[in-house]
Design a protein around this nucleic acid. Structure first.
Lengths: 339, 339
DNA sequence: TTGTACGCGTTATCAG
DNA sequence: CTGATAACGCGTACAA
């Protein structure tokens, strides 16, 4: 309790030389006992590990990184920490990497190109072993800067032609097509879109347009939403939509938050789903399943995406190259009561 | 594309000696120009910073941490990454620390004591500059281990008598009392509780019992929920409650996820809120505001909690000690249609 | 299988 | 205000 100096002033942790001294071996043997156990004689190794255990010795990661040039930190950037799906992907990635001794450092880019640039500068300083994004990097300058880091880079959540290094994604354009096809199959003709006009939202809209054209649907409105979209935006957008055009039969929202807002607004106005209006979201959000009458939503298995990304990163960090540096995960439509 | 070795093999970043050489000074002067600019002559400093800028030099954090004993990593552990409020707190903390050059490393404890212990071991290895938890550490052994790290430790989200080092919290017991008082004020008598029987849930129940006794309410049921509680648990719990006792007038749910589930179930059963049943949650979740008729919820400003925690941590890392190492944030009740 | 010698890149210390 | 020197703790390279 009452230490020499002050509250919180702990004893200096033991160093490798101390363990070596206690075990009667040289420091390098301790190092080997921990990193390459098979290269140390059984008896010695056991004695060393016992002492390590007893003293609570832990390798200093800074010294290690400095000497070996290998950090055990993997940086993960989410576009938005509030997103259940992004967090799931990061968790999946962590599940794979942490048992292997890597630590995930999580940052947020907030869908902002400015932040993305700042973040890349901070990566230069941090020198992680690898980087993962829940998204793709679009600015060519940032792509170059990332490539120049010389470490494995994982992009996700989209399906560009030329990822920086590795990719586990899906086609946002396909998701829009899928939405249009679903509406067509359900017999809707006059449809609308609510979403952002940049990034993934734009791609989903592109696909939706293509699918609509192919299926002979009329896109009677495209509402754009700025910044990080929220439920309130969804409510408002649906309100706008209905006030200007009473003939809309179905709405595709670029994400489930918007769709949830739209669904709630529709219910508030006393509309019956899907008869008065059908609503389709994107993202497989938990909440989507629960809200009566249940939001139909297109999406992927985000945790699995994260796991795949993690194992590919791991492979690259170990010097290998995944046979498939670009992988696609499957899009599924979970049909509920709203469509 | 086709580098010497493999994709992603970037050029080695410049080191401090290189900058020193270009500027015609010694390495230590470069170091000072970056860390203690006021100690370097104006002209020299400008020249050095210009070169740093031009070359994209970034200090190697491992070498720095090794030599100075000061890491720029702050570890933040959330009980559950899926929690909007915990993430908000972590974001708030990051907002304060990141501009000062610190990096947040985020981990998850999953409400599991086993994981908590593992995590503390990994802290020994990581050697962060400080640690923050969205929660308090209860196991005495873990508390000791954390104290032994000799770094600033921040606990949050509760209000124990003896935090390990620093605390920004609120009384979970008070939140339960507040709930009971609210029900009493609204004229309800027969009330119930849904929540976990450990950790914060238990405290909220304790306060709820006290408040109920003081106000003369009858707690006619206490339903316990295991593990990480979900909306489905809330639905089921409300169903259970109603099937065994039709006389319940109001339910306090230990968190908004449970409350949301309960609210949805009540609506599904055609009950009117708050007349047939009043529902009160905890956590100020976004969704709570939107779901008709709007969930009444008790809670705090989590982002602000995080910011306060961040600035206290900062103060401690700089060698100071906050005048108030234990702070309380205010609990508020946001009244909506459900009560 | 084990050990010796050295260096990773930076900053503390102290002298100028 | 600036620089020389050494040291942080570990792991690589090589030798035994």
């Amino acid at each position: 309790m009452a230490g020499e100096d002050a509250v919180g002033e702990g004893a200096a942790p033991p160093r490798i030389v101390e363990i070596a001294r206690l075990a009667g071996v040289s420091p390098i043997t301790v190092s080997r006992a921990l990193r390459q156990p098979e290269k140390v004689a059984e008896a010695k190794r056991r004695r060393i590990l016992e002492i390590v255990e007893r003293t609570g010795y832990a390798t200093n990661p800074h010294a290690r990184a400095l000497r070996s040039g290998q950090s055990n930190i993997v940086a993960a950037f989410v576009s938005n920490l509030q997103s259940e799906q992004f967090c799931l992907a990061v968790q999946g990635c962590g599940e794979v990497l942490e048992p292997q001794g890597y630590q995930l450092m999580i940052g947020q880019t907030s869908y902002s190109y400015a932040k993305e640039t700042t973040m890349i500068q901070s990566l230069r300083e941090m020198r992680p072993a690898a980087v993962m994004f829940t998204g793709v990097i679009e600015i060519e300058e940032n792509r170059r800067a990332l490539r120049a880091l010389g470490i494995p880079i994982m992009e996700t959540w989209a399906y560009p032609r030329d990822p920086i290094d590795m990719l586990v994604g899906f086609s946002n354009i396909d998701s829009g097509r899928l939405a249009a096809e679903h509406f067509a199959a359900r017999g809707h003709r006059r449809v609308a879109f609510i979403g952002r006009r940049s990034g993934r939202g734009a791609l989903r809209l592109t696909g939706f347009r293509e699918g609509a054209r192919a299926a002979g649907l009329d896109i009677v409105a495209e509402l754009s939403v700025d910044g990080v979209s929220s439920m309130v935006d969804g409510r408002r957008a649906l309100g706008d939509l209905l006030s200007r055009n009473a003939q809309i039969e179905a709405v595709f929202c670029a994400n489930d938050l918007l769709a949830t807002g739209a669904l709630l607004e529709a219910r508030r106005l006393g509309m019956r789903l899907p008869d008065d209006i059908a609503i389709l979201g994107f993202g497989h959000n938990d909440i989507a399943e629960e809200l009566p009458p249940g939001l139909t939503t297109i999406g992927i298995d985000s945790r699995d995406l994260g796991r795949q990304a993690g194992s590919m990163i791991l492979q690259r960090m170990r010097g290998g190259m995944p046979s498939e540096p670009i992988r696609a995960v499957e899009l599924t439509l979970a049909r509920r009561g709203s469509s």
